[in-house]
């Protein structure tokens, strides 16, 4: 009902949308399957069994992409291929990349989802209720909007001794909603004044039903686009946090990879395979999301359709 067959037809005829969607789907698939197919853990170490215990062991340091690394284990020397080489500590870059991609996508999903949800809720209530509810909610939103988000993130992140991917998503999600709230409020205000709301009222429809059945469905396409934007924004925000060293204390992400590559002079030492892949993946990911968004714009807004 919400996404009609007609919309779907137009969507699949839109090249930008198709390309963007393909990129994102491939990345998601890669992030799911990739970690299963590499013998290394999320930090790029090789897990070695010492009886009951598992100890992560590095391979040979600074190997070029495609080289064969050697890991010394009690069972003997294990030879493994490093698709993207190893870093200065002998950790597998490819494993870091797929695990990093996975955590970045998870952050995008949780943080972006959270920001969209909060923004939608606040914007919707403010727009529909109006009056003092509106004034109050918009005051909070505007205050949140003028506080520089990055500074706030840094302060919050710095005070937390332990930070995981979940906490990072939460911090980002809780700070990224204000502009969504404003946009959703504006949408609700305009929808509320549309004639079909009045028609539903004089048809004896209850207010709660009008909200759910008449107004909300009309916002779904918009909310979907907002989510895509928030998704990309959250990934970038996380990369930013990671890069200045406030990312997850344990685990790997694309931002942490970049941070470490810079920290250990990967570029100066000519280890391009350490610095370039995470940057490239981020760039392609954001491009894909951007393409989906402009594509969606053309799909939902008939005036932008180029035929």
């Amino acid at each position: 009902m919400i996404i009609s067959r007609e919309t779907l037809r137009i969507a699949l005829g839109n090249t930008k949308f198709k390309v963007g969607l393909a990129i994102i789907l491939i990345f998601i698939l890669w992030a799911i399957i990739g970690p299963l197919l590499t013998p290394f853990d999320n930090m790029g170490y090789y897990p070695v069994k010492f009886g009951e215990r598992i100890a992560p062991k590095p391979s040979l340091p600074s190997l070029k992409p495609g080289s064969i690394g050697e890991i010394f284990t009690p069972q003997g020397v294990v030879k493994v291929k490093h698709y993207l080489g190893t870093d200065s500590f002998g950790r597998d870059i490819y494993a870091q990349l797929v695990y990093g991609l996975k955590s970045s996508l998870v952050i995008g999903l949780i943080a972006g989802g959270l920001a969209t949800l909060i923004g939608l809720l606040i914007g919707f209530v403010a727009g529909y209720k109006g009056g003092w509810t509106d004034e109050g909610l918009m005051m909070i939103t505007n205050i949140m909007l003028v506080i520089p988000t990055m500074a706030l993130l840094i302060i919050i992140a710095a005070y937390l001794p332990y930070r995981g991917v979940g906490i990072e998503s939460l911090i980002i999600g809780l700070t990224a909603w204000p502009w969504t709230a404003r946009a959703v409020r504006a949408q609700t205000l305009s929808l509320k004044r549309r004639g079909f709301v009045e028609l539903a009222k004089i048809s004896g429809m209850r207010e709660s039903k009008i909200l759910l059945k008449e107004i909300l469905p009309n916002m779904m396409s918009y909310v979907f686009m907002v989510f895509i934007l928030q998704f990309g924004g959250s990934i970038l925000a996380a990369v930013g946090l990671d890069f200045i060293g406030l990312g997850p204390t344990r685990g790997m992400s694309l931002g942490i990879m970049l941070q470490q590559a810079v920290l250990w002079n990967a570029i100066n030492l000519g280890y391009w395979w350490w610095a370039i892949p995470p940057g490239l993946v981020i760039a392609i990911l954001i491009t894909g999301l951007y393409l989906i968004n402009t594509g969606l714009d053309e799909i939902f807004n008939p005036r932008l359709r180029r035929e």
């Binding site: 009902m1 919400i2 009609s4 549309r194 004639g195 079909f196 009045e198 028609l199 539903a200 004089i202 048809s203 004896g204 429809m205 209850r206 008449e214 469905p217 009309n218």
Partner: peptide
Amino acid sequence: GVFQDPFSSVNPLHRVDHVFDIIFEN
């Protein structure tokens, strides 16, 4: 009541039958 702009008086997502449905429902 009937209003000025027929197109804004109906929800673009629903078939026109919807305007009758909501009357019978309520």
